[in-house]
């Protein structure tokens, strides 16, 4: 907006650049630091001598003969079976995303196209549900789940995450569907489609951007969850986040912290990739909710 006319004075330009650089350091440095440190031994990453050691890896070289070591990763992935948690996370997040989208597109479409009052009340209820702290819901699940003997399974967690995800998915898809002109499905119905055919053949092909964006957020919710997966999964079925937290439980053991650091970095990588490829969708998703919400 100010590119052509309002030329910034030099001091303002410098201040802005300085501020942006500062923010970038704040935002990104913790990640870079942890990634770098994950290839060191504990004595370097948590150095009593000085943080410079973490950069050059003095103790790492002493202990392993090279300034970089994959010991943390080996320990986490192989010794402590982190790979199993990765597989579980994969199963959980993919299932949650897929099921959420199927239920959410159906429901969101209905909500966007129904002018009745009850549609509004469902949206309001969803808004209230979305605000519920997950851990309080978990405290409602545990006892019934123990009684029904369905505690600990991946499937249970998947269904629970899908349900917890629904309010948000409904809202987001509802607002995406609203942006698709009603004329489209109405002309399909006049052309000879049932409501469901119009939805499947005409509306969904146009909805892909919205579905992808919503899918990303469902994925993030399932991936980032700690409350549900840590409380509802048995030891064997643990996903990455509760697994990492269980590494911390046995922190006294030498080197275990580095397992956690390596696992943390491993778990961050998919998120990096996600933002790298889907930055635009994430931004549009956040704003879609804001502008219309």
């Amino acid at each position: 907006m100010s590119a052509s006319v309002g030329k910034q004075p030099l001091y303002l330009k410098a201040a802005i650049s300085g501020f942006v650089i500062l923010w970038l350091i704040v935002a990104a440095f913790p990640f870079l630091w942890t990634v770098w440190g994950s290839f060191k031994v504990e004595a370097d990453f948590f150095s009593r001598v000085g943080w410079w050691n973490a950069i050059v890896g003095t103790r790492t070289e002493l202990q392993t003969g090279s300034p970089f070591t994959g010991d943390g990763y080996y320990g986490a992935w192989v010794t402590r079976d982190f790979w199993r948690a990765v597989v579980n996370t994969g199963i959980v997040t993919i299932s949650v995303t897929a099921i959420s989208l199927v239920l959410g597109t159906l429901g969101g479409y209905a909500l966007a196209r129904s002018g009745h009052k009850y549609a509004f009340w469902i949206l309001i209820a969803a808004l209230v549900f979305r605000a519920m702290p997950h851990i309080t819901l978990v405290s409602g699940y545990l006892l019934p789940f123990f009684e029904l003997n369905i505690w600990g399974h991946l499937a249970t967690s998947i269904i629970v995450l899908v349900a917890i995800n629904q309010p948000f998915t409904l809202w987001m898809l509802h607002s995406f569907f609203l942006s698709i002109p009603k004329d489209l499905d109405e002309s399909a119905m006049v052309d000879g489609c049932t409501r469901f055919q119009a939805f499947r053949l005409v509306v969904i092909p146009v909805m892909w951007p919205g579905v992808i964006t919503t899918g990303l957020f469902s994925f993030l919710l399932a991936y980032n969850d700690f409350a549900v997966t840590s409380m509802l999964l048995s030891q064997d079925n643990q996903t990455m986040v509760p697994k990492i937290s269980s590494f911390l439980g046995s922190i006294q053991e030498q080197g275990n912290v580095m397992y956690a650091v390596a696992a943390v970095v491993s778990a961050t990588v998919p998120l990096f990739i996600l933002v790298l490829f889907f930055q635009r969708q994430i931004v549009s998703g956040l704003t879609a909710g804001a502008v219309k919400g």
Partner: peptide, 9 residues
């Protein structure tokens, strides 16, 4: 029916 905004797919 022909719609005001055409309703093309």
């Amino acid at each position: 029916m022909v719609f005001q905004s055409y309703g093309l797919y």
